[in-house]
Computed example of a mutant assay.
Amino acid sequence: MLSYQHAYHAGNAADVHKHALLAVALDYMAKKPKPLSYIETHAGRALYDLAGPEAAKTGEAAAGIGRMEGWFPDDHPYAQALDAARQLGGPQAYPGSPIVAATHLRDTDRLILAEKHPQEVAALKKAISWAEIHAADGPALALSLTPPEPRRGLILIDPSYEVKTEWTAIPDLVAKLRRKWPVGVVMLWYPLLESGAHLPLAAKLSEIGGEAVTSTVRFPPARPGHGMTGSGLWVANAPWGWKEAADALAARFASL
C-alpha cells in the first residue's frame, strides 16, 4: 500500500523484536562458509531518522529502541546493526531490516529487496547501492525467485497489514513458498492487535506444519488508543539457537 510510511513506526517495540531475531538468524547463517540468499518482500527505506518529525509524532521509537537498547550488549548481532546504521546516518539513525541484513551478509551472498513505494526505492538505492533492488510487488517477486541461487537462505515477509486482504493472502503466500523452497528459512512478522484481528492469520499459520516455531511478545501500547499490543514472528527452518534467543528476548519483554 503506497500510503504506508514506516518512518512513523521505525524503532518501535515490534521492530526491536523482529530485527533482533532477524539479526540472530543471519549472524548464525553467515558463520557457515556456504553463500546464502536473503530476500525481503516489503523492504522500506532501510535507514530511518529517529530525530525526525515522524518518530516524534508517534512516540513509538521512544517506547521501543529508546527504552530497550540496553538489553543488547555490544557484541549482539542487533547491536552491530544499530552501530552500522549510525555509522551511515548519524547517532539518531535506525536500521530497517535491509540494513540489519546487510550488516551480516558477506560478499558472496545475495541481498534481494522488493519495495513498491518510489520514494522508498530511491532511499534504498542510496543506502545499499550493491543490493538487488526491485520496484515491484514483493510477494509476486518472491514467488518468481524461489528457490533462489544460492538455494540456502532466508526470506523475510513483513507487510504493513493495512490492506485487509493481506491477512488472508499472506498465509497462502507462506504455504506456497514452503512448497517451492522447502530448505529456506521463511520468517513472517505480524502484529498482535487488541482487536484480535491477527488470530485467524495465526491459526492458518499453525496449519501449514513443518519445521516451524513462533515467537510472540507483548508490550504496552506506545500511546493511548494504539491498537498494537504485541509482535509475532513465525519461522520455518529456524537456525540453530534461534528459539533459545527468542525465548530469552521474550523474557525481557515480559518484564516491561
Score class of each variant (00 low, 15 high):
232 G>A: 15
136 A>W: 01
15 D>S: 09
72 F>N: 08
210 G>W: 12
212 A>L: 06
253 F>C: 07
218 R>S: 15
231 S>N: 02
9 H>V: 01
110 R>V: 07
241 G>N: 10
59 G>T: 05
6 H>W: 12
24 V>N: 02
251 A>D: 13
194 E>L: 13
212 A>C: 12
159 P>R: 01
201 L>G: 09
223 R>K: 15
75 D>Q: 13
41 T>N: 05
229 T>P: 00
2 L>W: 03
169 A>Y: 05
35 P>W: 12
168 T>L: 13
102 A>C: 03
236 A>C: 05
242 W>M: 11
254 A>Q: 03
191 P>A: 10
62 A>T: 14
128 I>N: 00
133 I>N: 04
157 I>L: 10
243 K>T: 14
167 W>H: 11
172 D>H: 14
242 W>L: 15
250 A>Q: 12
66 G>R: 09
213 V>M: 12
149 E>I: 13
240 W>I: 12
125 K>Y: 01
254 A>F: 01
48 Y>V: 03
168 T>D: 15
122 A>G: 07
236 A>L: 08
92 Q>R: 14
197 A>P: 01
235 V>P: 01
108 T>P: 00
222 A>C: 03
146 T>P: 01
133 I>R: 01
187 M>F: 02
68 M>H: 07
191 P>L: 08
183 V>C: 00
5 Q>S: 13
16 V>F: 01
146 T>L: 02
73 P>K: 11
102 A>V: 01
135 A>T: 07
170 I>D: 05
50 L>Q: 09
201 L>W: 10
41 T>W: 00
111 L>N: 05
165 T>L: 05
49 D>M: 03
29 M>E: 14
163 V>N: 08
217 V>A: 09
243 K>D: 12
49 D>V: 05
94 Y>E: 09
77 P>I: 03
117 H>K: 13
145 L>G: 12
83 D>E: 14
222 A>H: 04
193 L>W: 04
6 H>Y: 12
224 P>H: 08
109 D>L: 08
252 R>I: 09
82 L>P: 03
232 G>I: 06
214 T>G: 00
62 A>S: 13
43 A>I: 06
221 P>Q: 08
204 K>V: 00
189 W>Q: 08
174 V>F: 02
164 K>V: 12
244 E>Y: 02
5 Q>D: 15
40 E>N: 07
51 A>I: 06
189 W>D: 11
115 E>H: 13
247 D>H: 06
112 I>F: 07
164 K>L: 07
151 R>Y: 04
105 L>D: 04
14 A>H: 05
156 L>W: 09
192 L>P: 05
78 Y>P: 06
81 A>Y: 08
51 A>H: 10
217 V>G: 05
150 P>T: 11
252 R>N: 14
196 G>E: 13
170 I>H: 06
49 D>N: 14
8 Y>R: 05
33 P>D: 10
180 K>A: 15
34 K>H: 12
46 A>Q: 02
116 K>G: 11
148 P>N: 11
228 M>N: 03
36 L>S: 07
170 I>N: 04
113 L>G: 07
220 P>T: 08
25 A>S: 08
204 K>F: 02
162 E>K: 04
130 W>G: 01
